[in-house]
Design a protein around this nucleic acid. Sequence first.
DNA 1: GTCTCTGTGAACTGCTTGTGAAACCAAGTG
DNA 2: CACTTGGTTTCACAAGCAGTTCACAGAGAC
Lengths: 226, 226
Amino acid sequence: MEPLLIFPDPAPPALAQALDLAGYPWKAAGSPEAADRLEPEDGWSGAIIGADTDAEGAFALCRALRKRDLPFEPVLLLATGAQLTELELREDLFDDFCLAPFHPRELEARLAHLFWRTGRGTRPELVEYGPLVLNLETYQAAVGGRPLDLTYMEYELLKFLATHPGKVFTRETLLSRVWGYEYYGGARTVDVHIRRLRAKLGEEHANLISTVRSVGYRFGQSRWGV
Amino acid sequence: MEPLLIFPDPAPPALAQALDLAGYPWKAAGSPEAADRLEPEDGWSGAIIGADTDAEGAFALCRALRKRDLPFEPVLLLATGAQLTELELREDLFDDFCLAPFHPRELEARLAHLFWRTGRGTRPELVEYGPLVLNLETYQAAVGGRPLDLTYMEYELLKFLATHPGKVFTRETLLSRVWGYEYYGGARTVDVHIRRLRAKLGEEHANLISTVRSVGYRFGQSRWGV
DNA sequence: GTCTCTGTGAACTGCTTGTGAAACCAAGTG
DNA sequence: CACTTGGTTTCACAAGCAGTTCACAGAGAC
């Protein structure tokens, strides 16, 4: 995803933190010129302009963005309650606004709605580990760019393992956590599913899942710290 | 100025007072039927739907408003912070939202911006995905240039799927989002409608809707980056 | 009244999944 | 080194389940 343009520079800590947590990449710029310099190849995916500290600079940047022809970036304005009346004459400079100080969840919801409105989808929820990518929304998986055709249980098992990289799970644990019922007697079940997973991962990536003899299985490398 | 439609009925005192102070005329309605009865000659100028007390009723009213052809009213949703995540799949039901409890000035600013925006016709009227085109104004659909003769439910289902490409939906989710009621027992209903859709899409494009075994259905291909 | 749309039950089909058995392997042990 | 033992991988197969398809009936529109 292309980054968001943030004003001012440096970005307010609360804003930076909220964006990082939500998984939006961003770059801060303090002026239209700086924004031009920092602009990525494919343009910005949008902009969040903080008007609460430097209102004049903020509106100047909005104007600069709006002057460009295409592609059009959605602009989200951050403003204090006292600035609300100032917005009246500047409706054309932004697409949505959020009162500062803001709640991270509200910011996230506004970004999502803004992107939806302007025709860009929301970000998919991804689980990534090395070459492996799981898209939780579309139930699809890929390793090294190659899509994997996994069955339901295979996907669930891989998802569980990949969300706990490095950790070793016994067969009993896997049965109860992934399958969801108590352990009866089918420990072979886990083995076979692991085998099918390794087969589909391909020779090259089969070692993503390692066997810990007498214990169980581990996804990815072991963790010595953390 | 035409009045605003308010939900629920009676209107929350804070909302009524804020609108009166700001000079917006309004009428409250507790259901889609009541809204129809109260509707003025020239239609509503917009709607403010409070989802903080009766979420189901609120979304039902939104859906009813969105189903009407023209003229199109901008919808402002009032929601609590806890409801923010629920909005994700309902982006199409509103044009802006305001957290409750709200500050009158923020409400006023959002209304002003909303009217400004919609006065310029920034509403999406076409949904496109690959060979598929849905015209939301005329309720027509076409795939690969060939017009599709869809029934009402088929169109609604396809519209919902096509506005969330790549994402997998369970039958329960589809029932509640497209049909609008809670899941009773008719999961087959979804299957059959999917089947009819695929039949009408034609052999060539039937694969636009894919089955995700043990999960549900997905429209279009996954989104890996964007 | 006639027609289309819509929802539901039921048969059918194919794939997923679990399981036992056999082959295989690594590491002790005499 | 040969043998044993405990664990893991691999294979083949059968049962069950999820999805598809069909047929039909009620509801609602015209």
